[in-house]
């Protein structure tokens, strides 16, 4: 495991912003940290980076305590938007960051190339578009080839094209074997990119598994006439209005059974809950 937390908790007064969160991120995976705004994602990430001290519980990042130089030097992060000096160029901002991380200029150029910012690297940061700023943030996170990349809402504020670019970038990094912890409230983004997902709601981790496991088994929807006869013929089916739901993968066998019994089969299709439905169910959001 690259990241583990055990009952990690942060309280402000009586309010638990993060409440006994126990999660784990494995090496080489893209882990989606999913939750509505204000669910506790950023606070959890800030605790993993040592910016916020936990009230109780423990966390380990690459086998080290969060916030220690040993841990931080192996982690690249972008939290709630990039923080750079507006009067410096993109390249100079990276040079400043590289000096702090103890890496050389070659890393700066490589990172700029990786996020496709070489052409704009001498422009002042304040003149960058939001998308360019986010990409520079990722470039800074990539300095020193970290073992773990933590990206907190990296597509926030981006237009659709910028969001697609950022997703492509994360996918490309994942393809190179980079471990990524990606926090987001955008379900499509997480569904598209992530191998495993942790869902946080009101400070509590309500689920942690692969996207497929979260979405559950595929159910077959069958529309037939007469539906009552089909319901009797197919064991374990449930009637939902004028359609049946069946936990069964062999659609061919089901259709043959119905046709042999003189049931008119009008529609058979797999029915699966979307991540959005699962998410709303778990978080109570709508």
């Amino acid at each position: 495991m690259i990241v583990t937390t055990e009952k990690l908790t942060k309280r402000y007064g009586d309010r638990a912003v993060v409440d006994e969160v126990s999660l784990s991120v494995r090496r080489g995976e893209v882990y989606g940290f999913l939750g509505p705004n204000g669910a506790g994602k950023t606070t959890t990430i800030r605790m993993l980076l040592g910016l916020v001290k936990p009230t109780s519980g423990t966390a380990s990042v690459l086998g080290e305590a969060p916030g220690t130089p040993k841990a931080l030097l192996k982690v690249g992060s972008l939290i709630e938007g990039p923080g750079f000096y507006p009067y410096l160029s993109g390249r100079d901002n990276l040079r400043v960051h590289a000096a702090r991380r103890g890496v050389g200029r070659t890393h700066v150029e490589a990172a700029l190339e990786q996020v496709d910012l070489v052409g704009a690297s001498d422009e002042k940061f304040r003149r960058y578009s939001l998308g360019m700023k986010q990409r520079l943030g990722v470039a800074a996170a990539l300095l020193g080839r970290p073992e773990l990349l933590i990206l907190d809402e990296p597509t926030n504020g981006l237009d659709p094209a910028g969001m697609a670019d950022m997703r492509d970038l994360v996918r490309a990094l994942a393809a190179q074997g980079q471990t990524v912890l990606l926090s987001s409230h955008l379900l499509g983004e997480v569904e598209e990119i992530c191998d495993r997902v942790g869902v946080i709601s009101q400070g509590r981790l309500v689920a942690e598994s692969t996207v497929d496991q979260l979405r559950g088994d595929t159910v077959l929807l069958i529309r037939a006439d007469p539906i009552e006869k089909a319901h009797v013929l197919i064991e374990g089916s449930t009637l939902h209005g004028d359609v049946l739901h069946v936990r069964e993968t062999d659609a061919g066998a089901l259709v043959r059974t119905l046709v042999h019994a003189d049931v008119d089969v009008q529609e058979v299709r797999p029915l699966r809950r979307t991540l959005e439905e699962v998410f709303f169910e778990m978080t109570g959001a709508a």
Binding site: L51, P69, V75, I79, E80, G83, F84, R100
Partner: peptide, 14 residues
């Protein structure tokens, strides 16, 4: 305001 402390404190040094 610029968020550079956040960047600084996650860069590596104590």
């Amino acid at each position: 305001g610029w968020g550079t402390w956040k960047t600084t404190l996650t860069a590596g040094p104590r």
